[in-house]
Amino acid sequence: MKQWNSRKTMYCFFVLSIIFLAVVTVIGYFSYDKAMVVDFSRKNLPPSFSYPFGTDWMGRDMFARTMTGISMSIMLGVLAAAVSSVIAFSLGIIGASMGKAADGFVSGLIDLVMGIPHILLLVLISFALGKGFKGVVTGIAITHWTSLARLIRGEVLQLKESQYIKIAEKLGHGKLKTAVKHMTPHLLPQVLVGFVLLFPHAILHEAGITFLGFGLPPEQPAVGIILSEGMKYLTMGSWWLALFPGLLLTIVVVLFHLVGDILGRLIDPGRIHQ
């Protein structure tokens, strides 16, 4: 039998984290109806065995609400990460391989989007789309590509100097063909890691923007809304309303960070023996 090493520990941790995140998503997805039930006979209950996160002033089960909210955040994160990776990948490749004008355009675009503080940009987009759910989703989906695009652009610029790309060019491959055939396989691991590491940002921003009151109506279970309601009841001693949902949110985000980090280490051949 092969020896147990830290790489295997990482594998186990990786799989366990993904299972945990998937379970949270699924449970949350199916407890939407439960999260909407209002029952005044059980209002303001502190955490107990049957209501692990307590209940709020309308007797809603905070555990179900939190799970639903976080599940929604994760699903929104999937969308945001997917859209952003595609945008970042295309722009990164275009910028670095299509000549100087394209590069100037792409880096200008990156600077432009990064120029407005992110949460303010989300406020503007949400405002532009009429403050609905649509505004939040669009805002989160189309604003997270900048750092990944910058990373990919840098990587492509480096790749262009490498021997095998130069040989491909000398052999007469077109720029686009070189980019797709020779650069993409090299970039995919980075894009994959970048994809996972987009989740934390997307989730935190979604929580932030719904917390500020843009987006969903207040009875909907979204993490930001739960926390902003928890804030109102803070001074009345209902500490569990804000504490547990935020804690779970933090744990989920930490796990995404770790998963991305581990993924990066596992697929990087240069670190296979660490």
Partner: peptide
């Protein structure tokens, strides 16, 4: 700290 929502920490 990278994973903690700033506004939740503020609440705590």
């Amino acid at each position: 700290t990278a994973s903690t929502p700033a506004f939740w920490l503020a609440l705590v």
